[in-house]
Amino acid sequence: MKKSVFFGTLAVAAMASGAVSAQSMLEQVQARGELLCGSNTGLVGFGAPDANGEWQGFDVAMCRAVAAAVLGDPNAVEFIPLTTTTRFTALASGEVDVLIRNTTWTFSRDVDLAFEFGGINYYDGQGFMVPRELGVSSAMELDGATVCIQTGTTTELNLADFFSSNNMSYEPVPIETNAEAQQQYLAGACDVYTTDTSGLAATRASFEDPGAHVILPEVVSKEPLGPVVRHGDNQWGDIVRWTLNGLISAEELGITSANVAELAAGTDVPEINRMLGSEGELGAMLGLENDWLVTVISSVGNYGEIFAQNIGEDTPVGLARGLNAQWTDGGLLYSPPFR
């Protein structure tokens, strides 16, 4: 009797644990009817709720694009705010389907943490912001400064490298979220705030007096930011990767939210026809509707539209395209062909 109970329990246990993850990610998301998107806890321009509680921003638009591709509805997203320290655990444990939250693509995250980066949606680098009244004009003058830094980020490691390679000392003040960092920085509890320059610009834009703060010219690291998924479901990884590539290609080929419906009927450019589904079966190969990119672009626009709307030069964040221009314009955005 003892043995039968024991083996019976074991068998049940084995079945229970074996039954996990029989469905593919795509089926899970479609069955749920909602995309769980890991997002920033609040970084204006990239991912933050607006005055009406609607999530807005550059990374948020990417989440909506994936939701539009998979579910046909850009609003079928639940945004799950994650701090820099909780994001990877949340993704690895399946709490979110995709993490789109200013996350730097590094070797160890890709390989050791067993994640898959779906390309790069923003080429960034780490910078420093100081109050103008300090009179500092270069990061090399920061010896002995107190530096506010978000813990659990690549910036934390870059900062240590930058200061030790230049034989300077500093006092790190570790902080969990961008909002806390902003509060500490404005209260003068630290002299310098360091994070990705895009994040600095976004943070500065939300200050009462943005002109009183300068972003120092030094960019001390490469920070390629992109959407992240777990290892283990390549189809899901492909969907995220090609949604991003679709947004980038759309800008390159001149497909915008305004003309996408018209172009979807068919054009004399074969790649546009393949992307928008009037020729070939590219959508079906991903397990999606054939006109998936039409839905995506008509609901969030192409890469350039998303950029201009959320963080471009006409917004308070005011970022220039810089490295994030199309390769044809001297930038680094270069989508593989849709073929």
Binding site: T85, F88, A92, S108, T151, P174
Partner: peptide, 8 residues
Amino acid sequence: GITINQTG
């Protein structure tokens, strides 16, 4: 915190 985050 940091160690777990950097090493996974």
